[in-house]
Design a binder for these strands. Structure first.
Length: 791
DNA sequence: CGTCCTCTAAACAACT
DNA sequence: CAGTTGTTTAGAGGAC
């Protein structure tokens, strides 16, 4: 024992040091994202138009001043007059025209906030068009003015003295005034140009709202503010959201509507899922279909712009395994990426034009020449709702790609680190995380499972979002370095399962881990759940609702990067929890013993915690199983699909279930909506993802530990993933363990068998139904498959 | 401030 | 014997 422990400790320590790296990197990323956000960022909530206008005016003013100051060859030789007038006139004039002028920053802000109304966009467009003409006109005007000035100056040199001077001054003033006007015009032009550029970029999807820090950045769809509780987490998340989240759920929904022309509910595939939780985005799931939206990749939409914006509704329904979908999505994304890069190169003239084809997302209109393209651009992709929506979608795409990129980078790093190639570490972090993982992994897994897979795919890499997403995380990560990794105090675990009402019925959104699956799998972030919750989840996740201790361990390690280190600690905790909580029942098996969950007890325990609202408790049971059956599958699908793409928790949403009804349920409590899943990343907010709902949701009982996440959902969600894995079991163990799932474990060693009557476990239906009896029992298999599944 | 909950650590027994 | 599994106790810290 001792030896083992000491050994593990050593390892863990080393790993910890390594973690430092991850921490740093994550912080870096975060910083990056922040930067990115900065532009848009601060305006967390929507800004009223008036405010925007004010901002615009101010910025315009500043810009104008700068311009005037810089204006080198303005032609005016008498600075005096100019100086005097500047202050007065410029502001006014600028202010006058400011309304229509939007600086790039503002533009970005607006876009990010989704504040940009169609009207505004329209205005921008008009400006753009006008710019061309104005430009020419102004240039001519400018030349003339200069000439005039010169002439005047020359003339003035001859005449008398005082009169001359006066005249001169007057003239100069006049000129100055003119100059100002001119400059203003120039400024306007400049701004317009900038705007145009911005628009172009956006069209192209180049405009990335969130900062580079992909990671954090965001998961777009989440935006909602969080509720007061969990301030920490919320805070972190919020920050992230601001920065990252380009679109609020509501906005996305709207977007979808715009794009699709109607309902957005397809939860599909897009990899982007927005957590409904959010502010009430209620929206169902609006996911954006990245694949389709993007340009060429989606060949299907020959008629680009028009009607079919590439929103695909296939996903879930299409019968393909989510995993496959995910992969495909990823591939598509990559393709798009490549394409975009190509476009840039080849396009030359216009980012949206290349190879004689309009590169507008979804549009492949053939344009003989650039002029034709411009025409096409202005006619087909003018500023309208559709274009706006597509623009937004593109923004989302970019965000996602950035996130993906960061993830891939991290992975690469981890891989290299693992191979001892040690790439340049992101930051001078004292402790490299990545390595740790492998080490720890080997440590942990060795005994149980072959080290092979686990590490590769999962190397705890994506520190990114975590931080932002989960406030708590930071502490954890930070703590990671230090011996004491803070406790998971801040877990929402059970507390946050949120019951949402979908279609009137209260449904438990039980996304639990599913949505954030990918995130936690890769990010060395401590999951915001208690051990008990996780253990339960692990068990529920299994085909027959029972796992051996070792399998539970395996689940932890494969599901959470965080548990790939410090094995001694968390394993001990797991054992401790298994023993301590009545809800975990040990069942003697031929092979040994397996652990099952006494759902009754589990719920009991939670319900007890829920002080206030009995109603909540009451809801639990019912909500657990039934109402959500459908939703469960959907969620599962969503979760799966979204995971790969996003890789970030935030994106995922609870899916359709949460969708529309969220608002209603959550009602006033924003926290609920966000469900803890912060927008962005974290969908981002991890918390939200997993737990689903903040306490508030639950009938307002604060601590709502009810979380009762019905196994069903989760299970179903995972089925796709895990199920396949399970089957894969190479060991051939098919060991049937105990067939009876949750229901009644054959032997309850630990406690008296609770009344696990059939009634008790509604979920059992779901979970068990799908599964084939044989499971994997080996961790090894699981481990090996892990990567695949998860991926 | 007290209580509750969870996490962590550790000791120990039983089993493999 | 070494390692794993399971139980139990105790202390610390956070949340309410």
């Amino acid at each position: 024992m001792m030896m083992q422990e000491s050994a593990t400790e050593t390892i863990s320590n080393s790993s910890m040091s390594q973690n430092g790296m991850s921490t740093l990197s994550s912080s870096q990323l975060e910083a990056g994202s922040r930067d990115g956000r900065s532009s848009a960022g601060d305006t967390s909530s929507e800004v009223s138009t008036v405010e925007l206008l004010h901002l615009q005016q101010q910025q315009a003013l500043q810009a104008a001043r700068q311009l005037l100051l810089q204006q080198p060859g303005s032609g005016l030789k008498s600075p005096k007059s100019q100086d005097k007038q500047r202050p007065l006139q410029v502001p006014v004039s600028v202010a006058m025209m400011s309304p229509q002028v939007i600086t790039p920053q503002q533009m970005q802000q607006i876009l990010q906030q989704q504040v940009l109304s169609p009207q505004q966009l329209q205005a921008l467009l008009q400006q753009q068009q006008a710019v061309m003409l104005q430009q020419q006109h102004l240039q001519e005007f400018y030349k003339k003015q200069q000439e005039q000035l010169h002439l005047q100056l020359l003339q003035q040199q001859h005449p008398g003295k005082q009169a001359k001077e006066q005249q001169q001054q007057q003239q100069q003033q006049q000129l100055a005034a003119q100059q100002l006007v001119f400059q203003q015009q120039l400024l306007q032009m400049q701004q317009l140009q900038q705007q145009q550029h911005l628009l172009n970029m956006q069209r192209q999807g180049l405009l990335s709202l969130p900062g580079p820090a992909p990671g954090q950045a965001a998961l777009p769809g989440q935006t909602l503010p969080q509720s007061g509780k969990r301030t920490r987490r919320a805070g972190g998340v919020e920050e992230e959201r601001r920065g990252t989240a380009g679109l609020s759920p509501a906005e996305l929904q709207q977007l979808w509507k715009d794009v699709t022309g109607g309902g957005a509910h397809s939860m599909e595939d897009n990899g982007i899922k927005h957590s409904n939780s959010g502010t009430g985005n209620g929206g169902g799931g609006g996911g954006l279909d990245l694949s389709t939206n993007n340009s060429s990749s989606t060949t299907s939409s020959s008629n680009p712009a028009k009607a079919s914006p590439p929103i695909s509704h296939h996903s879930i329904a299409n019968g393909q395994s989510p995993a496959l979908n995910h992969r495909r999505e990823r591939e598509r994304e990559r393709e798009r990426e490549r394409e975009s890069s190509l476009h840039e190169e080849s396009g030359g003239t216009h980012p949206l034009y290349g190879h004689g084809v309009c590169k507008w997302p979804g549009c492949e209109n053939i344009c003989e020449d650039y002029g034709q393209f411009l025409k096409h651009l202005n006619s087909e992709h003018a500023l309208d709702d559709r274009s706006t929506a597509q623009c937004r979608v593109q923004m989302q795409v970019v965000q996602q790609l950035e996130i993906q990129l960061s993830k891939e980078r991290e992975r690469l790093q981890a891989m290299m680190a693992h191979l001892h190639m040690r790439p340049s570490e992101p930051k001078s972090s004292p402790k490299p995380l990545n390595l740790v993982s492998s080490v720890t992994m080997s440590k942990n897994l060795p005994s149980t499972s072959p080290p092979n897979l686990p590490q590769t795919p999962t190397t705890p890499t994506a520190p990114i979002t975590p931080m932002a997403a989960m406030p708590q995380v930071p502490s954890v990560l930070g703590g990671a370095n230090v011996p004491s990794m803070g406790a998971m105090r801040r877990r929402h675990s059970d507390k946050y399962s949120m019951p949402l009402s979908s279609g009137g019925d209260t449904v438990f959104i039980f996304p639990e881990i599913a949505p954030n699956y990918e995130f936690y799998k890769n990010a060395d972030v401590r999951p915001p759940f208690t051990y008990a919750t996780l253990i339960r989840q692990a068990i529920m996740d299994s085909a027959d609702m029972q796992l051996t201790l070792n399998e539970i361990y395996s689940w932890f390690t494969r599901t959470f990067a965080y548990f790939r280190r410090n094995a001694a600690t968390w394993k001990n905790a797991v054992r401790h929890n298994l023993s301590l909580h009545k809800c975990f029942v040990r069942v003697e098996n031929v092979k040994g013993a397996v652990w099952t969950v006494d759902e009754m007890e589990y719920q009991k325990r939670r319900s007890q915690k829920i002080t206030g609202s009995p109603s909540l408790v009451k809801n639990l049971p019912s909500s657990l199983g039934y109402g959500s059956a459908l939703n469960a599958s959907l969620q599962a699908a969503l979760a799966e699909t979204s995971l790969p793409l996003l890789g970030t928790p935030g994106l995922m949403t609870s899916g359709s279930t949460m969708g529309g009804s969220c608002h209603g349920l959550l009602g006033g409590d924003p926290s609920i909506l966000t469900g803890g899943s912060p927008p962005g990343l974290l969908g981002a907010s991890p918390p939200g993802l997993l737990g689903g709902s903040p306490p508030g949701l639950m009938g307002g009982s604060p601590p709502g530990r009810l979380s009762g996440s019905p196994p069903t959902l989760l299970h179903s969600a995972h089925e796709g993933l895990n199920g396949s894995l399970d089957h894969l079991d190479t060991n051939g163990h098919g060991s049937p363990r105990y067939s009876p799932p949750v229901h009644m474990p054959p032997i309850h060693v630990k406690e008296e068998p609770l009344n696990m009557d059939d009634d008790d476990c509604p979920m059992s239906l779901v979970t068990t139904a799908n599964h084939s009896p044989e499971l994997d029992d080996d961790r090894e298999l699981e481990e090996g498959n892990l990567s695949e599944d998860l991926e």
